[in-house]
Amino acid sequence: MLVISVISTKGGVGKTTVAANLGGLIADAGLRVLLIDLDMQPTLSSYYQLVHRAPSGIYELLAFNERNLTALASRTVIERLDVILSNDGHRQLNTLLLHAPDGRLRLRNLLPVFGPHYDLVLIDTQGARSVMLEMSVLASDLCVSPVTPEILSARELRRGTLQLMEDIAPYSQFGVSPPPLHLLINRMPAVSTNARLIQQTLRQLFQEQPGIQILRSEVPANEAIHRAAVLGLPVHRVEARRPSGRVAPAALEVMQELASELFPQWQELFNRVTSKSGRGGIHG
């Protein structure tokens, strides 16, 4: 089982849409995916319609060490895609974990119970520095950080997300090495000189920085992403072909490329996904 966190200390960069659409495509490829919503604004929890709502959620997992999968995992309408809902309505978890001896390592210690049931865990995090965010990073095999090609987003990346990775580096002395960080250029406009300049600067800046990689894959600004969210569907089911006259590739191609770069061991499965995969297409 692989554990991936989608992180950024800046809100509004597209963490939830990346997590939801990546999880949807990977589930349609035949793999078992668990989404975990660690955001106090639980957008991921409501992205997909549920066919079964579990009685518990992230609060019971972290506050009471709940390990019963039946109690925790809600089933979405997307086959093989489950979600642990964000249900910390009173926002108590940050304080609880801050004062717990194992606070930053609690999720890491709890996740192995899901290993027999899922191939991939995707964690959506809040867009602010917190003990919850640090806990998520330390529980992960890899972190993906969406970065929009804007100067404020680039500055916050250096000030917030990269500083976070530096601050948790000492955990390697206890055998918990911080995971690699992959930066994802998100919402790339089709035509924008400033955006292209920022993209090129980011690629040059982190070209040889240890532990940090800018993904070759980019997610273009695409109205289909908003349409998919309204419909509660993965974007690859909504746009499988590139519209006539548009330069940017179809959403299906974009998500296949991103998933294949992150998980090359499953590339063959991803390449077989179509817009109809969720309706009887592929089984792993």
Rank of each mutant, 00 (worst) to 15 (best):
V219F: 03
Q200F: 05
S275G: 13
C143A: 12
R279D: 09
A54R: 04
A29L: 10
K15L: 00
A63Q: 06
L133W: 00
K276P: 07
L93H: 08
I151V: 08
H182F: 13
T95E: 05
R53M: 11
V83Q: 15
Q265A: 07
N68E: 15
E66F: 00
G115E: 11
L50D: 09
P170R: 05
G115Y: 09
G12N: 13
P170E: 03
T201K: 14
D102I: 08
H52L: 08
L111D: 00
V219I: 15
H226P: 02
A221D: 13
V235T: 15
G23M: 08
I7R: 00
S153D: 11
V273H: 00
Y59S: 13
L81P: 02
V137L: 01
G103C: 06
L105N: 07
A73N: 13
R203K: 11
A27W: 10
Q265D: 06
E150N: 09
T193P: 07
A54T: 07
R75G: 11
T274C: 05
S74C: 14
V137W: 00
R67I: 08
R187I: 10
P179T: 03
R106P: 15
A229P: 12
V3F: 00
L50G: 10
P189N: 03
T201P: 06
I198G: 04
A169I: 09
S192K: 05
R80H: 04
A251C: 15
R80E: 06
V230S: 12
R246H: 14
P189R: 03
I282P: 01
N87H: 13
A240T: 10
K10E: 11
S8P: 10
P189E: 01
A71F: 12
L38S: 05
I4P: 04
L205Q: 12
P42Y: 06
P243T: 05
Y118G: 08
L31S: 09
P210N: 11
Q163C: 07
W266H: 02
E150A: 11
L93G: 03
E257C: 03
H182R: 08
